[in-house]
C-alpha cells in the first residue's frame, strides 16, 4: 500500500466493480434477449414458459442486487 494510492482498495473496487457493474447489465441484457430475441415468440405470438422462467430468473438476480444495495445504504453504507 502506497502513501498516496491505496492500491488494494482500488484493485478491489475495479475488479468487483467490473463484475457487478458490468455483470448485472449483461444479465439484464440476457434476460431481454431471452424474452425478445428473434424467434422468442412462437407462431401464435406467445413467449414460451421456458423463456419466461429464464428471463425472470435473470431479472430476479438483478432485482435482488438492487435490494441488497438498498440494504447496504440503509445500514450505513460501509
Amino acid at each position: 500500500m502506497n502513501e498516496f494510492i491505496e492500491w488494494g482498495a482500488l484493485a478491489n473496487v475495479l475488479i468487483v466493480g467490473t463484475l457487478v457493474g458490468a455483470g448485472l447489465p449483461a444479465l439484464f441484457a440476457l434476460g431481454v434477449r431471452i424474452l425478445a430475441a428473434p424467434g422468442a415468440r412462437d407462431d401464435a405470438g406467445e413467449v414460451s414458459t421456458v423463456r419466461l422462467v429464464g428471463a425472470w430468473a435473470c431479472f430476479a438476480i438483478v432485482i435482488a442486487a438492487v435490494i441488497g444495495a438498498i440494504y447496504f445504504l440503509a445500514s450505513g453504507g460501509h
Binding site: A9, V13, G21, L24, P25, A69, G77, H78
Partner: peptide, 25 residues
C-alpha cells in the same frame, strides 16, 4: 437506453463498492 442503463448501473456499482471498500470516489 441500453447505454444509459449500463452507465447508470456502473455508476451505482462503483459508488457503492468504493464506499464499501473505504476508498470513496
Amino acid at each position: 437506453s441500453r447505454q444509459g442503463m449500463a452507465a447508470e448501473t456502473s455508476s451505482a456499482a462503483v459508488i457503492l463498492l468504493s464506499s464499501h471498500f473505504g476508498y470513496s470516489l
